[in-house]
Nucleic acid binder design. Sequence first.
DNA 1: TATGCTGTAAACATATCAGTTACAGATAAG
DNA 2: CTTATCTGTAACTGATATGTTTACAGCATA
Lengths: 147, 147
Amino acid sequence: MNSDFCVAVHAFVYLNHHGGKTCSSKELATNICTNPARVRKILAMFKNCEFITTIESGPGGGYQFSGDPDKITLSDIASIMKIDFVEPGWRSGDTDMDCLIASGMGNLMDGIFSDLNKDCYSKLSDISVSDIEHRIFGTTKKAGGKS
Amino acid sequence: MNSDFCVAVHAFVYLNHHGGKTCSSKELATNICTNPARVRKILAMFKNCEFITTIESGPGGGYQFSGDPDKITLSDIASIMKIDFVEPGWRSGDTDMDCLIASGMGNLMDGIFSDLNKDCYSKLSDISVSDIEHRIFGTTKKAGGKS
DNA sequence: TATGCTGTAAACATATCAGTTACAGATAAG
DNA sequence: CTTATCTGTAACTGATATGTTTACAGCATA
């Protein structure tokens, strides 16, 4: 998996924590420990959703959190980025072979990984941007949070 | 993730399906569509467990399934191989920075991915080697299998 | 007009992955 | 004993992926 997801989540948390302030890609890159171009490339994926407002040009431009941090989950973020958390990346066997094992294992494993991926999304839908912030700053919001 | 896991599962299913027969790394590699050296390297990880018997030398050497295909699950296989299905591979921020977000996000994301990984293991503990075989050959063993 | 921001692309270095080749060690067959 | 065969393991290679750096067009603000 690409670590772009980590960058995006980090940016979301940072932007949310800095409230209405507009942050430049440079400021975000410094905090995330990466380069501004990468931040811009990743946050550009969120242009057509309401989570982040982008001011593309002019001094004072940058990114601003514009969603409900309690509603936006890591699953939402991953979904927009089309992240595959689990992926085989390589298929054993060959569909054209006679042996049912050789011809079937590729698709079968793809299916299993696809299921695992869905489970990841499901799990991440329980973690909101607010939750992350609370975990970092130690401010427990819900009493019943697990661990 | 590495696709070694796919190779291992494929080999397990193949060996199981061929009963007591001893198969060489070459035969397995042909079926999996990879090279014998890779098969040997991967199956060597199972030397100290009872799932597979290895005859290391001499003509007629090779690998043989020696476990209970109903009991051995994909989770068992992954566990022995120490597979990380989900891994960040890159840490945003830096533990030494003052900002709590910058210093905390790395560990926090690691924790989340670690949880996802555990969930993957949990899911895979429901899939046995027999299950895979049944899926491939269309022989339904349990009536209540999902999909 | 000058400045500063995003969006985007290209070039680069590095790491990872799988394939290939090779060889030591061991065993069975002749 | 000699030969053939198989695993375990390491080194080398080529392809692909990943993140960094640099650069530039487009645009808004002062």
